[in-house]
Design a protein around this nucleic acid. Structure first.
Length: 620
DNA sequence: CCGATTATGAATCGGCCT
DNA sequence: AGGCCGATTCATAATCGG
């Protein structure tokens, strides 16, 4: 069991001595934010004091402010320094300094959609935004406490201050985080030039984040800078302790470093994701070869555990973006071809322990011919495939398979190389299998169910098209179960699960097949047919717990979450894969990236996870 | 309207070469 | 370093028939 994950659920968000040691350690990976902008005070050029100041400057505080805080509190007490800095920020917030100092900020701004007005980022922090903060002496300590809490949750001081101004003095933490999350979602919608997001649907509007406020945000283009702030937030979250290598052998870290060095401009942000080769994440059942030891940031440690999934081969920058919202945890990239007879390259971001995983039994067939025995008889020797490619949502047309049949038939038993190449190319592209002499066919839904680890007939009873869509969007159960297997001994009496974008219930099936009782499942799924499939499975498997179904993820606001957490005593696991429609390479029409119409729902996952954490923290 | 069928490339990666 | 090439990819939209 991972002691570093399981035992460190202490409440202290501050910097303990261990962190400080890591931070001071010269061998620690130096965070990017220690770059150009970090200028020390006049007299501490090479001392540890300089590093300390750089550290806080890298977090986004102005140099002057940091110097003052250090002078006032001494360099030994980092906690006191932080507290002082937060107080200063609340009083005389100087975001211009922060923006100037945070390296990569400009770079990131220029990365934003060009449709964004190029209005100066600093304009967003015009005077009136801060007027209110100058006359607050009476309840300073109270505000300070709130601000501190928000910063400890990872929000930058400047952003938290704005939220507090907008939401009012006595806004709760939940309301404030609502505001901050709403800003991100509005940003996502903004990038699409669609109408204002539907906040606070029918039941009980979300506090403060009403349309008027969102409109203000739009016009004030605060949102255009929001992601820059978000980035800065990551500097905060991502400082030394987190930049520690995630692998004991730091193989991938070195590889990243290598790529960074290859880059012409060393200051330029290298925004590429390195895939492990072979793509086996933290190991697979057959070969858990890499000893890995990762250290999660305190903010990422549960409860609840969380598990997020999406396609590995997303457009450039998407995964680093997703990571930046999920505590900078590096995705675990795994190809399900190491778990089944079909490939499925996916990235998983989670805060689960990674030791002592075990696979589902029985181990499913690992080759096409084993999984589909009837094909072996017709399989030509010149088709060398043993694994299928990724199962998608649509199949090859009958016209295509007919063309291929003719092409092979014409050349009788021994087609020329050109034909062989053409046919195998099409076979790989469309995942065709040999089902007769010279006869190719796409997979049947039954076969796909089996390949993905679902019980037989799991999706039976709905239209074939819907069935294929549901399956094509589903988890590979053996793969996910392997990752979730560590939960079994931790929750012998069962789990309460929040399942977002449940689809046909891959997460539920995975937990069930592991033998983990489902005490309660709150499932959010927009498709009615998918909900029917999951409910039907729930009944068929005689589940004894409660299944709560929610159709629209936006209905799951903080009030609803609070109510659910109240009645279930919190969630043990928040699991889900957000829509990949705008990320996957098979989309020829609208591969728009993370801001896409469907894929931007990732921010709902982020929002809900955060709100669950906040609410649960208040209850414990 | 529902369901089935069909045609529709580009982005990105790794590997190899010069 | 940089170019070429093979390989891969949780899809969308138009159309047709019932």
């Amino acid at each position: 069991m991972d002691s570093n994950v399981d035992n460190e659920s202490s409440d202290s968000f501050g910097w303990d001595t261990e962190d400080e040691q890591e931070f001071m350690s010269p061998s620690g990976a130096s965070p990017r934010c220690f770059g150009n902008g970090a200028v020390g005070c006049s007299d501490e050029a090479s001392s540890s004091n300089g590093t300390l100041i750089s550290h806080f400057v890298g977090m986004g505080f102005s140099r002057d402010m940091v110097c003052k805080a250090v002078n006032d509190n001494g360099e030994g007490d980092t906690d006191a320094i932080l507290e002082a800095l937060l107080t200063y920020s609340a009083l005389e917030n100087s975001p211009s300094e922060m923006e100037r100092i945070a390296p990569g900020g400009e770079q990131f701004l220029s990365d934003l959609s060009s449709s964004e007005s190029e209005g100066d980022f600093l304009d967003d922090f015009s005077d009136e935004d801060y007027l209110g903060s100058e006359d607050n002496d009476g309840n300073l300590s109270e505000m300070d406490e709130t601000l501190k809490q928000l910063v400890r949750m990872g929000y930058p001081a400047a952003e938290a201050t704005i939220a507090m101004e907008r939401c009012g003095r006595d806004a709760s933490i939940a309301e404030l985080t609502d505001f901050l999350c709403a800003a991100q979602m509005a940003k996502a919608s903004d990038a699409q030039l669609v109408e204002l997001p539907r906040f606070g649907s029918n039941e009980g509007e979300v506090p403060v984040t009403n349309l008027q406020n969102v409109g203000i945000i739009f016009r004030g283009s605060i949102l255009s800078s929001y992601f820059a702030l978000q980035r800065r937030r990551n500097y905060f979250n991502g400082n030394p302790r987190k930049k520690k290598t995630f692998y004991a052998d730091d193989y991938w870290e070195r590889k990243r470093q290598k790529r960074r060095e290859r880059c012409r401009d060393p200051d330029e942000e290298v925004d590429s994701t390195i895939f492990p080769n072979p793509m086996i994440g933290f190991g697979i059942p057959a070969e858990p070869w890499r000893r890995h030891l990762r250290t999660l940031p305190n903010e990422a440690i549960g409860p609840p555990y969380f598990y997020y999934e999406n396609v590995a081969l997303a457009p450039k920058g998407v995964w680093s973006r997703i990571s930046s919202f999920l505590y900078e945890i590096q995705p675990e990239f795994v190809d399900s071809k190491y778990f089944s007879a079909a490939a499925r390259k996916r990235g998983y971001i989670h805060n689960l322990p990674t030791s002592n995983r075990f696979p589902l039994l029985p181990i499913p067939p690992q080759t096409i011919q084993e999984a589909l025995p009837m094909t072996e008889k017709w399989w030509p020797s010149w088709d060398s495939r043993t694994k299928l490619n990724c199962i998608q949502t649509s199949l090859a047309s009958a016209r295509l398979t007919d063309r291929l049949r003719k092409a092979v038939e014409d050349s009788n038993n021994d087609p020329p190389l050109t034909i062989q190449k053409y046919v195998t190319e099409q076979c790989r592209k469309w995942n065709l299998v040999w089902v007769g002499r010279n006869k190719l066919a796409p997979l049947e839904p039954d076969e796909i169910e089996s390949l993905l680890g679902f019980p037989r007939n799991h999706t039976r009873g709905i239209s074939r098209t819907e069935r294929l869509r549901g399956l094509g969007n589903a988890f590979q159960v053996d793969t996910v179960s392997y990752h979730l297997s560590v939960l079994k001994e931790m929750f012998p009496s069962g789990m309460t699960v929040l399942s977002l974008f449940s689809g046909i219930g891959g997460a539920e099936v995975a937990l069930h097949r592991l033998g983990i009782p489902l005490k309660a499942v709150v499932s959010v799924e927009i498709s009615e047919t998918n909900r029917n499939i999951l409910r039907s499975w729930w009944m068929t498997t005689n589940q004894r717990g409660n299944l709560i179904e929610i159709d629209d993820v936006q209905k799951l606001d903080s009030d609803k979450l609070e109510q659910l957490i109240n009645s279930f005593g919190g969630f043990d696991l928040v699991i889900g894969g957000s829509p990949c429609n705008n990320l996957t390479g098979s989309n020829r029409v609208s591969r728009n990236g993370l801001e896409g119409e469907h894929s931007s729902l990732f921010f709902e996952y982020f929002r809900i996870l955060n709100q669950v954490k906040v609410i649960m923290a208040n209850y414990s």
